[in-house]
């Protein structure tokens, strides 16, 4: 009963927030509505028992992706009202794509009648292990059976990092002038820095 109420609350809020994401005039409001919809999606994920996905939604999508969206919106400084003017022109195309996706969705729902699927390998050896939380199960698979893909995913992150730096980072000419090298400072000894001289009377110090 409570679950059903919670489900409808999250679902209604999710759809409302999603609609407002598209409809709001101000792109910053759109991003904020998107964040609301992420939170509600996370609630739905908890309801179906996918706690890890819920956590990822909050941490990665709300915490990082949405912030990035905000930055991009602020960075581009596009006149969105002008952009929206093209909406009606592209409307038929959008509807066509939406219809194709809808047809796909109906097909997917049709498959629901086919009965329960056995997930994992054909002999069922990778079927969900009972008695453990799904985070443990994800971990047990990800870091043993799929470790090869996990490491490759690490490489993707590395390439993303290198790519972002290559494309956006600009070496500034002045960057190195005030650059502090702590190692160099620590290595410096008094005898390198100071020198004792005894100049004769009437003569200057020769450095």
């Amino acid at each position: 009963m409570i679950q059903a109420i919670a489900f409808y609350m999250f679902a209604v809020l999710l759809i409302a927030a999603g609609t407002l994401t598209i409809m709001s005039r101000n792109p910053v409001h759109s991003v904020l509505w998107l964040i609301v919809s992420f939170f509600n999606a996370a609630g739905l994920m908890v309801l179906v028992g996918a706690e890890f996905i819920a956590m990822l939604l909050v941490i990665v999508y709300v915490g990082a992706v949405a912030v990035l969206f905000l930055f991009v919106v602020m960075m581009l400084n596009i006149d969105f009202a002008e952009l929206r003017a093209g909406f009606m022109k592209n409307f038929p195309l959008g509807i066509a794509i939406a219809l194709v996706l809808l047809a796909e969705l109906i097909l997917g729902i049709g498959a629901y009648g086919a009965g329960v699927l056995e997930l994992g390998t054909p002999d069922g050896s990778a079927a969900p292990l009972l008695g453990r939380s799904n985070i443990e199960n994800i971990g047990a698979l990800l870091y043993s059976d799929y470790l090869f893909l996990f490491e490759a995913a690490g490489l993707i992150l590395l390439v993303a990092m290198v790519g972002a730096i290559v494309l956006t980072h600009r070496e500034r000419a002045t960057a190195h002038r005030g650059h502090q090298d702590i190692g160099k400072q620590n290595r410096r000894r008094p005898e390198d820095a100071t020198v004792n001289t005894r100049p004769e009377v009437g003569k200057g110090v020769q450095l």
């Binding site: 490759a152 490489l155 993707i156 390439v159 993303a160 290198v162 790519g163 290559v166 494309l167």
Partner: peptide, 9 residues
Amino acid sequence: ELSSLSSYV
């Protein structure tokens, strides 16, 4: 994705 991401850059 690994090859595509490198290609985009």
